[in-house]
Amino acid sequence: MLNLYLLSYMTAENLNEWLERFRALGPLPGIFLTFMKSFVPPLPTAVIVGVNAAVYGLWLGFLYSWIGLVAGCMTTFLIVRAIASHSYFQRWAERPKVQKSMRWVRRNAFSFVFILSMMPVGPFAIVNTAAAVARMPKLPFFLAIAGGKAIMVLAVSYVGHDLSRFAERPYELLYVAGFLAFSFWVSRRAEAYFTRESE
Rank of each mutant, 00 (worst) to 15 (best):
L4K: 15
L7A: 14
L7M: 15
S8D: 12
T11C: 06
A12N: 03
E13W: 08
L15R: 03
E17I: 13
E20M: 10
R23K: 05
A24M: 13
G26K: 02
G26Q: 04
P27R: 03
I31S: 02
F35A: 01
M36E: 01
F39D: 03
F39S: 07
V40R: 09
L43P: 04
P44Y: 07
I48K: 03
V51A: 06
V51Q: 06
N52W: 00
A53I: 03
A54C: 05
A54H: 01
L58I: 09
Y64C: 00
S65T: 00
S65Q: 06
I67C: 09
G68R: 07
V70G: 00
M74D: 06
M74T: 04
T75G: 05
F77H: 00
L78P: 07
V80E: 01
R81V: 04
S85W: 05
Y88L: 15
Y88W: 15
F89Q: 06
R95N: 10
P96T: 08
S101A: 14
W104N: 01
R106L: 05
A109T: 10
A109F: 10
F112H: 01
L116N: 10
M118F: 04
M118P: 00
M119D: 06
G122W: 07
N128G: 04
N128K: 04
T129N: 06
A131W: 05
V133K: 07
A134V: 02
R135I: 09
R135T: 11
R135G: 10
M136Q: 09
P137H: 09
P137T: 04
P140E: 02
F141Y: 10
L143A: 11
L143H: 09
A146T: 03
G147E: 00
A150R: 07
I151K: 03
S157F: 02
F166D: 02
A167Y: 14
E168I: 11
P170Q: 01
Y175G: 15
V176R: 03
L180K: 00
A181V: 12
F184N: 02
V186S: 05
R188P: 08
E191G: 11
T195R: 13
R196N: 13
R196E: 13
